[in-house]
Design a binder for these strands. Structure first.
Length: 427
RNA sequence: GUGGGUGUAGCUCAGGUGGCUAGAGCACCAGAUUGUGGCUCUGGGGGCCGUGGGUUCAAGUCCCAUCACCCACCCCA
């Protein structure tokens, strides 16, 4: 049997890789503009970090982790997300004793054992930001604004921002009891999934898609109505800040994010038309996380975006062609005696940062020109008997077919001049 | 983990009810044009027909299993 990439993984080949570079560039640039610096954490961590940080009741921890034992029988896990690692790094390096807030962004692969489908892979890529050490609602807003700014810079105009507040540990607990009281009399009418959700995390029953479940729990108390005064005020201030930035959002009572560490603000971005997995980004506040991971009682907020899903959305726009792979100059030799001259000139051009190419397949002169054309070379340098005997190179403009003889000592300068004109001319 | 769909050349796909050396377009390579690209023409290389088993004189075609991909559930980014 032929070896293939493991299920749910895939290769990113040229020319697609340049799309990735383009998107990653925008993500990094935007984050840096907002004052976030890059953090790179290990791809695997102690399994315990995710159990504590993500939460043992979540699907991620109970059935989606790639966990293995190393040769010393340590239990390690390929990171399913990066927030817990950031909290760990914050604690491990005592970052909290420095300037606060600590603002980080990351970009890289994550791993979850899930059934693959459109926009969902076992190795997938996330961009995310985390800000530790401040409970300011305006920081919540900053993070959301950053998320929206990324979409804008990518040219994505159709998206829905949903936000909610899941309260603090105290008001959420009060609410949870009320909700259980409301659901218990009708629990037999719930779908099988909700029967178990009701046991583990009754809040999840709220965003079940089954109509019968909605009908069963109709007029349920909302979390929004049960926020304590601090949490309600915090939520109001976040919304005010978003309004001040003309960012449209929709309060969504049913938005209950899956990870255990969320408190207060929770948000999600959906883009229609990219399949069932339409959440391109989501996040929120996680004021209990750092302490849960063994650090001080420090608040935090952040989000993560799925790059594969962003790419799906960008592709539906038929985004402008990125012609980064094209060569500037192709060196064609009309006689294989001149290989060495070609090799030498090639290096000289490249040292001037000119994208230069030559043939390595023993092609005929004609085939070399065809190859140059496929590479998208703007010009060709032709080396034949006449050129060598008389000490010049023939420089051909591939578009106009115009050819000139250039003294071999002036070829580099001449190529540079012409390239500058190409770039200026095409805007 | 559950359900549905699909696996034939690098890619997109043809191959009624089983029957000679498995086809096309595109791509790739070469030649026409031995010192010159895009168009055209000619030729060429490429296939364990996803894999394993079964039925049959005979399987790309029928049956079973398995794997992979796609779509959806679930969950999430």
């Amino acid at each position: 049997m032929q070896l293939k990439a493991p299920r749910g993984t895939y290769d990113i080949l040229p020319p697609d890789s340049s799309k990735w570079q383009y998107i990653e560039g925008i993500l990094k640039e935007t984050a840096e503009t907002f004052g976030y610096r890059e953090i790179r954490t290990p791809i695997f961590e102690h399994t315990e970090l995710f159990e504590r940080g993500v939460g043992t009741s979540t699907d991620i921890v109970t059935k989606e982790m790639y966990t293995f034992k190393d040769k010393s029988l340590r239990s390690l896990t390929l990171r399913p997300e990066n927030t817990a690692s950031c909290a760990r790094a914050l604690i491990e390096h005592s970052i909290y004793s420095g300037i606060m807030p600590a603002k980080w962004y990351y970009i890289g692969p994550m791993f979850r054992y899930d059934r693959p489908q459109t926009g969902r892979y076992r190795q997938f890529h996330q961009f995310g930001v985390e800000a530790f050490g401040s409970n300011s609602p305006y920081l919540d807003a900053e993070v959301v604004i950053l998320l929206i700014e990324v979409l804008k810079r990518l040219g994505l105009k159709e998206y829905e921002l949903h936000i909610n507040s899941v309260g603090c540990m105290q008001c959420r607990d009060v609410y949870r009891q009320k909700l259980i009281k409301h659901i218990t009399p009708v629990k037999d009418m719930l779908c099988p999934d909700c029967q178990t959700r009701y046991q583990q995390n009754p809040l999840r029953v709220l965003d079940c898609k089954e109509k019968s479940c909605h009908q069963a729990i109709v007029n349920y108390p909302t979390l929004f109505q049960h926020l304590c005064s601090d949490c309600a005020r915090h939520y109001d201030m976040v919304k005010e800040a978003l309004q001040a930035n003309s960012i449209d959002y929709r309060h969504d009572d049913n938005l209950v994010r899956g990870l255990d560490y969320y408190t207060n603000t929770a948000f999600e971005i959906h883009i229609p038309g990219i399949g069932a997995q339409s959440a391109v980004g989501g996040g929120g506040r996680y004021n209990g996380l750092v302490e849960d991971c063994g650090g001080p009682d420090l608040p935090g907020i952040g989000f993560a975006m799925g790059i594969e899903r962003l790419l799906l959305a960008v592709n539906t726009l038929a985004a402008k062609e990125l012609e980064s792979g094209n060569s500037d100059v192709f060196i064609a030799i009309m006689n294989d005696d001149y290989e060495l001259q070609a090799v030498e000139l090639l290096t000289c051009l490249r040292r001037e940062n000119i994208r230069a190419e030559k043939d390595y397949m023993g092609r005929s002169g004609r085939a070399q020109m065809k190859y140059a054309d496929k590479l998208g070379a703007k010009m060709a340098i032709i080396i034949g008997d006449d050129e060598i005997q008389q000490g010049y190179f023939t420089l051909r403009d591939m578009q106009s077919k115009e050819q000139v003889q250039i003294d071999k000592d002036e070829i580099i300068e001449s190529v540079k001049d012409r390239l500058a004109k190409f770039r200026g001319g095409n805007g």
